[in-house]
Simulated scan of single mutants.
Amino acid sequence: MTAAAYRRLRLGPLSLRFHARRTALCTGLALLLLALALAALATGSGDAGLADALAFLTRPTDTAHSIVGDLRAPRIAMALACGAMLGLSGAALQTVTRNGLADPGLLGVREGASLAVIALMLCYPGAPLFLRPLAGMAGGLAVALAAMAIARSLSRMRFILVGIGLSWFLSAVIAMILVTADIDSVQAAMIWMAGSLSGTQPEMLPLAYACLALGGGLLVLTMRAAEASLLGETAAIGLGVHVLHLRMATIAASVLMTAAAVSCAGSLGFVGLLAPHLTRFLVGSGQAALIAGSATLGAGLVLVADTIGRTLFAPVQIPAGIVLSVLGVILLFVLLWQRRNQI
């Protein structure tokens, strides 16, 4: 990429160098996401429409807009947060492992978090909501550490294969628990596992966005080091990058955000795998563009899937995780076809 493609913005003593085309594309994707969020806010089985959605945005305390404010807005906000976290987690793992197949689901992090949350739900049904992300983080971190210990490397295919093996094993454990548990307790767990956002509660939003800010902020802080790591471990060390610290920070951010997304919305597949690839296809390479694009496209994927699930077959609601599985397969085949000569 030539230097002419970059621009420099000066604000007093501060100077920011950015890629003009990628910045414009990421801005366009962000505006499109806002438009989709507004459309989702105005769409549903209730009587509230676009006028009510706009009225809620300008007067959010007005009790006349309870359908939009109490039902749709928290669900849309959670879809955006969970999608962004999963997109960022996928981008971080693909960067640190230098493997395009890396994904929180393929590495077992999602299943580890799911197992911990399900155990909490079945053993302590009345547990406070804030304990779910804590349990999910503990489960996801345990699986990530186990995969690293067995594979002894983060940059080889062996790490992916170990993660896939752990993922299948934990899926079998989860299935065994659900089969043997009491049917009344299992029903709520099954709905949650399908990736349903229907049970979103407003008090869960601050925790979800706090995890998004913490994990995303950590990825932004390590962005330059991650860019250098793509040149290879030897080159990165020569450029002054502490590779081990970078990998641990990236894994920690990915586990934090994956656990938070799983704890709040259940299993949402394909987002962490597809969002980074869609970003590279639509926006281009570059770590800054990858982070911004993956967060935006991940949020958009979950938002669109949830909106389709709650409106297409209304009043019956299809969990977003099921819709994502269908959309994910279609998008994956489209990407594979577009890059058929590069594979």
Rank of each mutant, 00 (worst) to 15 (best):
Leu303Glu: 08
Ile291Lys: 07
Leu303Met: 08
Ala292Leu: 15
Gly293Thr: 11
Ala288Val: 14
Leu297Thr: 00
Leu303Arg: 09
Leu301Ala: 13
Thr279Gly: 00
His277Asp: 02
Val302Gly: 02
Ile291Trp: 05
Gly286Pro: 12
Val304Cys: 11
Thr279Phe: 11
Gly298Glu: 08
Ser285Phe: 14
Ser285Tyr: 06
Ala289His: 01
Ala305Asp: 00
Ser294Gly: 13
Ala292Val: 15
Val283Lys: 03
His277Gly: 06
Gln287Cys: 10
Ala299Pro: 07
Val302Lys: 12
Val302Thr: 08
Ala292Lys: 02
Val304Gly: 01
Leu303Pro: 04
Ser294His: 12
Gly298Lys: 03
Arg280Ser: 07
Gly284Leu: 00
Ala299Tyr: 01
Gly300Trp: 07
Leu297Gln: 03
Gly286Val: 06
Gln287Glu: 07
Thr296Cys: 14
Gly286Leu: 03
Gln287Pro: 04
Gly300Cys: 08
Gly284Thr: 06
Arg280Pro: 03
Ala305Phe: 06
Gly293Glu: 06
Gln287Phe: 06
Ala299Lys: 06
Pro276Ala: 09
Thr296Arg: 01
Leu303Phe: 07
Phe281Val: 15
Gly300Lys: 00
Thr296Met: 09
His277Tyr: 14
Ile291Ser: 04
Ile291Gln: 00
Gly300His: 05
Ser294Gln: 02
Val283Trp: 03
Val304Ile: 15
Gly298Pro: 01
Phe281Lys: 15
Gly298Gln: 04
Thr279Trp: 00
Gly293Gln: 04
Ser285Thr: 13
Ile291Ala: 01
Ser285Met: 12
Ala288Thr: 12
Phe281Gly: 12
Val304Ser: 11
Leu297Ser: 02
Leu297Phe: 06
Ser285His: 14
Gly298Ser: 06
Ser285Gly: 14
Arg280Met: 04
Arg280Tyr: 12
Ala295His: 03
Ala295Gly: 05
Ala288Pro: 01
Ser285Gln: 15
Ala289Thr: 10
Thr279Tyr: 02
Ala288Trp: 13
Ala295Glu: 09
Leu290Met: 11
Pro276Gly: 10
Ala292Phe: 01
Val283His: 03
Gly300Pro: 05
Ala292Tyr: 10
Leu278Ser: 01
Ala305Leu: 07
Leu278Ile: 07
Asp306Lys: 13
Phe281Tyr: 15
Arg280Trp: 05
Gln287Asn: 15
Gly298Ile: 02
Pro276Arg: 06
Leu290Tyr: 02
Leu301His: 03
Gly298Val: 04
Arg280Thr: 10
Leu303His: 10
His277Phe: 08
Gly300Thr: 03
Thr279His: 05
Leu282Lys: 09
Ser294Val: 01
Ala299Ile: 11
Thr296Gly: 00
Ala292Asn: 08
His277Asn: 14
Ala288Ser: 13
Leu282Ala: 12
Val304Thr: 14
Leu282Pro: 07
Pro276Cys: 01
Val304His: 11
Gly293Pro: 08
His277Val: 10
Leu278Tyr: 02
Val283Ser: 04
Gly300Ile: 04
Gly300Val: 14
Ser285Pro: 05
Gly300Asp: 04
Gln287Met: 09
Gly286Lys: 08
Leu282Phe: 07
Ala289Met: 11
Ala305Thr: 00
Thr296Tyr: 01
Gly284Trp: 09
Leu297Asp: 04
Leu278Thr: 01
Val304Asp: 04
Gly284Cys: 10
Ala288His: 05
Ala288Phe: 14
Arg280Lys: 12
Val283Gln: 07
Arg280Asn: 10
Ala305Asn: 10
Leu303Cys: 05
Gly300Tyr: 05
Phe281His: 15
Leu278Gly: 10
Gly284Lys: 03
Leu278Gln: 05
Leu278Met: 04
